[in-house]
């Protein structure tokens, strides 16, 4: 009797743990013509929070990119300047460049911001996590789309 109860609780607990860890699973997306045309989330991107992510340690885009719209003395130059990037690319193309740039250039120095697998020796703090969440990706690209010149 107690054994049965114990087993039920144990199984429930396992299911709970499993579903909690499954939260780390990322949303599926489809790549068409070097772009991810569909939004990753149902909430449309917010350019203001996108800008904050770009500047902050979360996105850390300034480590590698110059963004003339942003006033900051220390901007890296490992990747191209993001000036006018909203003119050069569609939303879908920008989304792929953030989600998984290796599709375009397997040797890219730009990290995949929405990837949590097939990575080696990831710091314990970040294992199983993508650098940005799906919503943060949408926010960032909605801001990038405003960079027209």
């Amino acid at each position: 009797m107690y054994f049965k109860l114990f087993m039920i609780i144990l199984i429930n607990f396992c299911i709970f743990i499993y579903s909690a860890s499954a939260n780390n699973a990322l949303i599926n997306y489809q790549i068409i013509d070097y772009a991810i045309p569909l939004s990753l989330t149902s909430v449309s991107g917010n350019p203001e929070s996108g800008q904050k992510i770009v500047i902050s340690r979360e996105g850390n885009c300034l480590a590698c990119h110059q963004i003339p719209n942003i006033v900051d003395k220390f901007q890296g130059n490992i990747g191209p300047s993001l000036a006018g990037v909203g003119n050069r690319y569609t939303m879908g193309e920008l989304r792929l460049r953030l989600v998984d740039p290796y599709v375009i250039n397997s040797k890219s120095l730009m990290p995949a911001f929405y990837k949590n697998q097939n990575l080696i020796r990831v710091d314990k703090k970040y294992t199983g996590k993508s650098i940005l969440t799906a919503q943060q990706i949408e926010d960032v690209i909605s801001w990038l789309a405003t960079l027209k010149n």
Binding site: Q75, P111, Y126
Partner: peptide
């Protein structure tokens, strides 16, 4: 030469390929 970490970067990518570039400051 092994790409590691959440950023998926290897030593050579920074110190061989782009030495002289700026990473932030």
């Amino acid at each position: 030469y092994q790409r590691i970490g959440q950023m998926n970067l290897a030593c050579n990518q920074c110190h061989d390929e782009i030495a002289g570039s700026y990473l932030r400051a």
